[in-house]
Protein backbone atom coordinates (compact mmCIF):
# COMPACT_ATOMS: atom_id res chain seq x y z
CA UNK A 1 0.00 0.00 0.00
CA UNK A 2 1.31 3.41 -0.85
CA UNK A 3 0.14 6.06 1.59
CA UNK A 4 -1.29 5.11 4.93
CA UNK A 5 -4.19 7.14 6.27
CA UNK A 6 -3.73 8.56 9.75
CA UNK A 7 -6.51 9.15 12.21
CA UNK A 8 -5.91 12.92 12.20
CA UNK A 9 -6.26 13.11 8.39
CA UNK A 10 -9.79 11.75 8.44
CA UNK A 11 -12.68 14.05 7.77
CA UNK A 12 -14.90 15.09 10.66
CA UNK A 13 -17.87 15.13 8.32
CA UNK A 14 -20.33 12.29 8.82
CA UNK A 15 -22.31 10.91 5.90
CA UNK A 16 -24.93 9.17 7.98
CA UNK A 17 -27.72 10.84 9.94
CA UNK A 18 -28.29 9.89 13.56
CA UNK A 19 -31.05 7.56 14.58
CA UNK A 20 -30.29 4.44 12.58
CA UNK A 21 -31.92 1.33 13.99
CA UNK A 22 -28.71 -0.70 14.19
CA UNK A 23 -28.17 -2.66 17.39
CA UNK A 24 -25.83 -1.25 20.01
CA UNK A 25 -22.32 -2.30 19.02
CA UNK A 26 -23.22 -3.09 15.38
CA UNK A 27 -20.11 -3.83 13.35
CA UNK A 28 -21.69 -3.43 9.93
CA UNK A 29 -22.75 0.19 10.39
CA UNK A 30 -19.29 0.97 11.76
CA UNK A 31 -17.80 -0.44 8.57
CA UNK A 32 -20.28 1.56 6.47
CA UNK A 33 -19.39 4.74 8.36
CA UNK A 34 -15.67 4.22 7.67
CA UNK A 35 -16.26 3.40 4.03
CA UNK A 36 -18.31 6.56 3.45
CA UNK A 37 -15.61 8.59 5.20
CA UNK A 38 -13.10 7.13 2.75
CA UNK A 39 -15.21 7.77 -0.35
CA UNK A 40 -16.64 11.19 0.50
CA UNK A 41 -19.90 12.80 -0.52
CA UNK A 42 -19.73 12.06 -4.26
CA UNK A 43 -20.84 8.51 -3.78
CA UNK A 44 -23.85 6.61 -5.04
CA UNK A 45 -24.79 3.67 -2.85
CA UNK A 46 -26.86 0.70 -3.94
CA UNK A 47 -27.75 -1.42 -0.94
CA UNK A 48 -28.81 -5.02 -1.41
CA UNK A 49 -31.29 -6.18 1.20
CA UNK A 50 -29.69 -7.05 4.49
CA UNK A 51 -29.20 -5.60 7.93
CA UNK A 52 -27.87 -2.36 6.47
CA UNK A 53 -30.95 -1.80 4.33
CA UNK A 54 -33.22 -2.37 7.31
CA UNK A 55 -31.43 -0.09 9.73
CA UNK A 56 -30.99 2.68 7.14
CA UNK A 57 -34.74 2.91 6.43
CA UNK A 58 -33.72 4.86 3.29
CA UNK A 59 -33.38 7.94 5.51
CA UNK A 60 -30.06 7.70 7.27
CA UNK A 61 -27.47 8.28 4.51
CA UNK A 62 -26.86 11.88 3.47
CA UNK A 63 -25.79 10.75 0.01
CA UNK A 64 -27.71 9.19 -2.93
CA UNK A 65 -28.75 5.81 -1.65
CA UNK A 66 -31.11 3.16 -2.92
CA UNK A 67 -32.28 -0.09 -1.43
CA UNK A 68 -32.76 -2.95 -3.88
CA UNK A 69 -33.51 -6.66 -3.70
CA UNK A 70 -31.30 -9.28 -2.13
CA UNK A 71 -30.18 -10.63 -5.48
CA UNK A 72 -29.76 -7.66 -7.81
CA UNK A 73 -27.49 -5.07 -6.21
CA UNK A 74 -24.64 -5.45 -8.73
CA UNK A 75 -27.13 -5.67 -11.63
CA UNK A 76 -28.72 -2.35 -10.63
CA UNK A 77 -25.25 -0.85 -10.22
CA UNK A 78 -24.35 -2.01 -13.74
CA UNK A 79 -27.27 0.08 -15.00
CA UNK A 80 -26.30 3.09 -12.90
CA UNK A 81 -22.75 2.89 -14.19
CA UNK A 82 -23.86 2.65 -17.83
CA UNK A 83 -26.26 5.56 -17.42
CA UNK A 84 -23.55 7.76 -15.90
CA UNK A 85 -21.20 6.70 -18.68
CA UNK A 86 -23.67 7.80 -21.38
CA UNK A 87 -24.25 11.12 -19.60
CA UNK A 88 -20.49 11.60 -19.46
CA UNK A 89 -20.52 11.84 -15.69
CA UNK A 90 -18.83 8.58 -14.82
CA UNK A 91 -15.76 10.17 -13.27
CA UNK A 92 -17.77 12.41 -10.95
CA UNK A 93 -18.97 9.72 -8.60
CA UNK A 94 -17.80 6.70 -6.66
CA UNK A 95 -20.16 3.78 -7.09
CA UNK A 96 -20.60 1.50 -4.12
CA UNK A 97 -22.68 -1.64 -3.68
CA UNK A 98 -23.21 -2.68 -0.07
CA UNK A 99 -24.44 -6.16 0.73
CA UNK A 100 -24.30 -8.61 3.57
CA UNK A 101 -22.85 -12.07 3.43
CA UNK A 102 -26.24 -13.61 2.58
CA UNK A 103 -26.72 -11.18 -0.27
CA UNK A 104 -23.21 -11.88 -1.49
CA UNK A 105 -22.33 -15.50 -0.91
CA UNK A 106 -25.78 -17.03 -1.36
CA UNK A 107 -28.52 -15.01 -3.01
CA UNK A 108 -26.64 -12.32 -4.91
CA UNK A 109 -23.75 -14.46 -6.13
CA UNK A 110 -25.12 -14.68 -9.69
CA UNK A 111 -25.52 -10.97 -10.28
CA UNK A 112 -22.18 -10.18 -8.61
CA UNK A 113 -20.45 -12.72 -10.81
CA UNK A 114 -22.16 -11.26 -13.88
CA UNK A 115 -21.34 -7.63 -13.09
CA UNK A 116 -17.70 -8.48 -12.41
CA UNK A 117 -17.47 -10.51 -15.61
CA UNK A 118 -18.84 -7.58 -17.64
CA UNK A 119 -16.19 -5.41 -16.04
CA UNK A 120 -18.36 -2.60 -14.70
CA UNK A 121 -16.48 -0.01 -12.71
CA UNK A 122 -17.75 -0.16 -9.13
CA UNK A 123 -16.79 -1.12 -5.59
CA UNK A 124 -18.54 -4.05 -4.00
CA UNK A 125 -18.52 -4.05 -0.22
CA UNK A 126 -19.59 -7.20 1.56
CA UNK A 127 -19.94 -6.92 5.32
CA UNK A 128 -19.64 -10.43 6.60
CA UNK A 129 -21.38 -11.16 9.89
CA UNK A 130 -21.56 -14.84 9.08
CA UNK A 131 -25.33 -15.40 8.92
CA UNK A 132 -28.65 -13.77 7.98
CA UNK A 133 -28.80 -11.52 11.00
CA UNK A 134 -31.78 -9.26 10.34
CA UNK A 135 -34.19 -12.14 9.71
CA UNK A 136 -33.29 -13.91 12.94
CA UNK A 137 -29.82 -15.33 12.47
CA UNK A 138 -30.23 -18.20 10.00
CA UNK A 139 -27.06 -19.82 8.67
CA UNK A 140 -25.51 -18.53 5.46
CA UNK A 141 -22.78 -19.70 3.11
CA UNK A 142 -20.14 -18.00 5.20
CA UNK A 143 -21.20 -19.30 8.63
CA UNK A 144 -18.14 -20.92 10.20
CA UNK A 145 -18.02 -24.48 11.43
CA UNK A 146 -19.53 -25.01 14.86
CA UNK A 147 -21.47 -21.73 15.05
CA UNK A 148 -24.91 -22.09 16.60
CA UNK A 149 -27.50 -20.25 14.49
CA UNK A 150 -31.28 -20.42 14.51
CA UNK A 151 -31.25 -23.03 11.71
CA UNK A 152 -28.21 -24.92 13.01
CA UNK A 153 -28.88 -25.07 16.75
CA UNK A 154 -26.97 -27.14 19.26
CA UNK A 155 -28.80 -30.35 20.02
CA UNK A 156 -28.39 -34.11 20.11
CA UNK A 157 -28.14 -34.50 16.31
CA UNK A 158 -25.98 -31.56 15.30
CA UNK A 159 -23.78 -29.25 17.36
CA UNK A 160 -24.06 -25.98 15.49
CA UNK A 161 -23.12 -25.60 11.84
CA UNK A 162 -21.91 -29.03 10.73
CA UNK A 163 -20.64 -28.51 7.20
CA UNK A 164 -16.89 -29.28 7.10
CA UNK A 165 -14.63 -26.33 7.93
CA UNK A 166 -12.97 -26.17 4.53
CA UNK A 167 -16.34 -26.11 2.70
CA UNK A 168 -17.22 -22.60 3.93
CA UNK A 169 -17.73 -20.24 0.99
CA UNK A 170 -14.60 -18.19 0.62
CA UNK A 171 -15.97 -15.28 -1.39
CA UNK A 172 -12.69 -13.31 -1.77
CA UNK A 173 -11.13 -16.41 -3.37
CA UNK A 174 -14.12 -16.75 -5.68
CA UNK A 175 -13.66 -13.12 -6.73
CA UNK A 176 -9.93 -13.67 -7.30
CA UNK A 177 -10.87 -16.57 -9.55
CA UNK A 178 -13.00 -14.07 -11.54
CA UNK A 179 -9.81 -12.07 -12.22
CA UNK A 180 -11.29 -9.08 -10.38
CA UNK A 181 -8.74 -6.24 -10.66
CA UNK A 182 -8.76 -5.56 -6.92
CA UNK A 183 -9.82 -7.90 -4.12
CA UNK A 184 -9.22 -7.13 -0.47
CA UNK A 185 -10.30 -8.36 2.93
CA UNK A 186 -10.62 -6.05 5.91
CA UNK A 187 -11.88 -6.08 9.45
CA UNK A 188 -13.61 -3.44 11.54
CA UNK A 189 -10.91 -4.06 14.13
CA UNK A 190 -8.48 -2.24 11.84
CA UNK A 191 -10.47 0.75 10.55
CA UNK A 192 -7.53 2.65 9.04
CA UNK A 193 -6.58 -0.41 7.03
CA UNK A 194 -10.18 -0.64 5.78
CA UNK A 195 -10.18 3.05 4.81
CA UNK A 196 -6.89 2.63 2.93
CA UNK A 197 -8.31 -0.30 1.00
CA UNK A 198 -11.51 1.51 0.07
CA UNK A 199 -9.53 4.54 -1.12
CA UNK A 200 -7.36 2.27 -3.23
CA UNK A 201 -10.42 0.49 -4.65
CA UNK A 202 -11.86 3.86 -5.69
CA UNK A 203 -8.83 4.52 -7.89
CA UNK A 204 -9.08 1.17 -9.67
CA UNK A 205 -10.71 1.01 -13.11
CA UNK A 206 -13.08 -1.91 -13.19
CA UNK A 207 -14.76 -3.85 -10.43
CA UNK A 208 -13.20 -4.15 -7.01
CA UNK A 209 -14.34 -6.36 -4.18
CA UNK A 210 -13.83 -5.69 -0.46
CA UNK A 211 -14.82 -8.25 2.14
CA UNK A 212 -15.22 -6.66 5.58
CA UNK A 213 -15.40 -8.88 8.60
CA UNK A 214 -17.90 -7.19 10.91
CA UNK A 215 -19.05 -8.53 14.22
CA UNK A 216 -22.69 -8.82 15.23
CA UNK A 217 -23.41 -8.81 18.97
CA UNK A 218 -27.06 -9.81 18.50
CA UNK A 219 -26.40 -12.82 16.32
CA UNK A 220 -23.14 -13.97 17.85
CA UNK A 221 -24.48 -13.46 21.35
CA UNK A 222 -21.43 -11.47 22.34
CA UNK A 223 -21.19 -8.33 24.45
CA UNK A 224 -21.77 -5.16 22.38
CA UNK A 225 -18.60 -3.67 23.84
CA UNK A 226 -16.54 -6.54 22.44
CA UNK A 227 -17.46 -5.93 18.79
CA UNK A 228 -14.23 -4.25 17.78
CA UNK A 229 -12.16 -6.49 20.04
CA UNK A 230 -13.64 -9.60 18.41
CA UNK A 231 -12.88 -8.27 14.94
CA UNK A 232 -9.27 -7.78 16.06
CA UNK A 233 -9.12 -11.22 17.69
CA UNK A 234 -10.38 -12.86 14.50
CA UNK A 235 -7.29 -11.49 12.76
CA UNK A 236 -4.91 -12.24 15.62
CA UNK A 237 -6.08 -15.86 15.86
CA UNK A 238 -5.82 -16.34 12.10
CA UNK A 239 -9.52 -16.92 11.42
CA UNK A 240 -9.47 -13.93 9.09
CA UNK A 241 -6.46 -13.05 6.99
CA UNK A 242 -6.23 -9.44 5.86
CA UNK A 243 -4.80 -9.13 2.38
CA UNK A 244 -5.14 -7.27 -0.86
CA UNK A 245 -4.85 -8.96 -4.21
CA UNK A 246 -3.79 -6.97 -7.23
CA UNK A 247 -2.15 -7.98 -10.53
CA UNK A 248 -1.98 -11.58 -9.39
CA UNK A 249 -0.02 -10.62 -6.28
CA UNK A 250 -1.15 -10.81 -2.69
CA UNK A 251 0.13 -8.55 0.05
CA UNK A 252 -0.75 -9.12 3.68
CA UNK A 253 -1.60 -6.68 6.43
CA UNK A 254 -1.60 -7.26 10.18
CA UNK A 255 -0.49 -10.85 9.77
CA UNK A 256 -0.08 -12.25 13.29
CA UNK A 257 3.59 -12.92 14.08
CA UNK A 258 2.62 -15.15 16.94
CA UNK A 259 -0.87 -16.51 16.46
CA UNK A 260 -3.20 -16.41 19.47
CA UNK A 261 -5.08 -19.62 20.36
CA UNK A 262 -8.50 -19.78 18.68
CA UNK A 263 -10.13 -20.28 22.07
CA UNK A 264 -9.51 -16.57 22.84
CA UNK A 265 -11.83 -15.73 19.97
CA UNK A 266 -14.43 -18.43 20.59
CA UNK A 267 -14.95 -17.87 24.30
CA UNK A 268 -16.30 -14.34 23.86
CA UNK A 269 -19.18 -15.51 21.70
CA UNK A 270 -22.36 -17.27 22.77
CA UNK A 271 -22.63 -19.11 19.48
CA UNK A 272 -19.42 -21.07 20.21
CA UNK A 273 -19.96 -21.76 23.92
CA UNK A 274 -20.70 -25.47 23.34
CA UNK A 275 -17.26 -25.90 21.71
CA UNK A 276 -15.22 -24.68 24.63
CA UNK A 277 -15.26 -28.04 26.42
CA UNK A 278 -14.76 -29.98 23.21
CA UNK A 279 -10.99 -30.19 23.01
CA UNK A 280 -10.96 -32.36 19.89
CA UNK A 281 -12.92 -29.85 17.79
CA UNK A 282 -10.81 -26.94 18.98
CA UNK A 283 -7.67 -28.84 18.01
CA UNK A 284 -9.18 -29.51 14.60
CA UNK A 285 -9.97 -25.80 14.26
CA UNK A 286 -6.45 -24.87 15.29
CA UNK A 287 -5.09 -27.21 12.63
CA UNK A 288 -7.44 -25.84 9.99
CA UNK A 289 -6.52 -22.21 10.73
CA UNK A 290 -2.81 -23.08 10.59
CA UNK A 291 -3.24 -24.93 7.29
CA UNK A 292 -5.23 -22.11 5.74
CA UNK A 293 -2.67 -19.50 6.80
CA UNK A 294 0.01 -21.59 5.12
CA UNK A 295 -2.08 -22.12 2.00
CA UNK A 296 -2.97 -18.46 1.61
CA UNK A 297 0.70 -17.41 1.86
CA UNK A 298 1.85 -20.03 -0.65
Amino acid sequence: MTKKTKIKDLTDEEFLHYGSLSCAGCGAILAFRHVLKALGENTIVINSTGCMAVVMQMAVPKIPYFHVLFENGPAVMSGVEQALDILGKRDDANLLVVAGDGGTADIGMGSLSGAVERGHDFIYLCYDNESYMNTGGQRSGTTPFGAATSTTPVGSVIKGENRPMEMRKDVPEIMIAHNTPYVATASIGYPLDLIDKVKKAATIRGPSYIHVFSSCPAGWRSEPKDSVKLAKLAVQTGFIVLFEHEDGKRTFQHLPKKRKPVKDYLELQGRFQHLLEDRETIEKMEEFVEKRLEWIQR
Partner: peptide, 15 residues
Amino acid sequence: STLVFEPGWSEDNLT
Protein backbone atom coordinates in the same frame (compact mmCIF):
# COMPACT_ATOMS: atom_id res chain seq x y z
CA SER B 1 -40.77 2.62 8.16
CA THR B 2 -40.95 2.06 4.39
CA LEU B 3 -41.46 5.50 2.87
CA VAL B 4 -39.24 8.51 3.08
CA PHE B 5 -40.99 11.85 3.53
CA GLU B 6 -37.94 13.96 4.13
CA PRO B 7 -34.23 13.20 4.22
CA GLY B 8 -32.84 12.44 7.63
CA TRP B 9 -36.16 11.97 9.43
CA SER B 10 -34.46 9.08 11.22
CA GLU B 11 -33.13 11.72 13.60
CA ASP B 12 -36.58 11.53 15.21
CA ASN B 13 -35.49 8.16 16.62
CA LEU B 14 -33.83 9.18 19.85
CA THR B 15 -31.78 6.02 20.17
